[in-house]
Design a protein around this nucleic acid. Structure first.
Lengths: 114, 114
DNA sequence: ATTAAATGCAACCATAATGTTGCATATTAA
DNA sequence: TTAATATGCAACATTATGGTTGCATTTAAT
């Protein structure tokens, strides 16, 4: 496999991990809760949830592992803060896919009309 | 739970499923292979892969279940075609998150400057 | 100094996801 | 009509995921 294929495979792997991290309703709502920019503690993020604090902790770790949140120790609390960079990366990816799709449609159209 | 919360939860669940469907490198590359608009058979999509045809078939089913591809029987072949609608939906979602994030940053800026 | 609150860590369980193999069936080609 | 191709179906093994419980540890409040 060429160097470029290796790094492309790496990029795909990373993107896939971010997609996977968002591929769970609990984690999507955690992201939503953090969207206002205020770092929040595990207890706060767990409040009102139907699952245990430890489950929420695991979900936060998944998000942290793909760089979607970062953890800040503050006294006895662990605050989590959103980092939207990986989301921007996904947007770019979807953008590329969409534009390629548009091109494919145009090509098809031209082919049919000729 | 209110009606609006119920349907919001449904939407989140659906979006999460699409994210999850893309959350695997094999499925991401299947999507990439189909981006030119040409429906392709399972055998074609499996060629050059390191996993078996049956594994690819399962991945295609995952994509089909969230509406990212559709299956067309043609003789003895099963052709799969990309449907980008769910991708557009994800783009919208990410767009909303991004804009809310920008708002939060602006609010914070204003707060600090006051 | 005690008590309460917030986490961390680890073991454990149930279920889902990923992949394989083997065989049956349907279509096309020779 | 025989052989080759493409797929479908089902059982199985392995590992990952999502969740729980119990207990220890650290920090804050009385």
């Amino acid at each position: 496999m060429s160097r470029s294929n290796r790094s492309a495979a790496l990029r795909i792997e990373q993107q896939a991990q971010v997609f996977a991290a968002l591929g769970d309703p609990t984690r999507m709502s955690l992201v939503t809760k953090l969207i206002d920019g205020k770092p929040q503690s595990i207890s706060t993020l767990t409040a009102g949830s139907k699952i245990t604090r430890q489950a929420v902790t695991k979900h936060l770790s998944v998000l942290e592992n793909v760089g979607l949140v970062s953890k800040i120790k503050d006294g006895r609390e662990s605050l989590y803060e959103l980092d939207p960079k990986p989301l921007l990366s996904l947007q770019e990816y979807l953008q590329i896919i969409s534009s390629q799709w548009d091109n494919a449609l145009n090509d098809l159209k031209r082919f049919v009309e000729d």
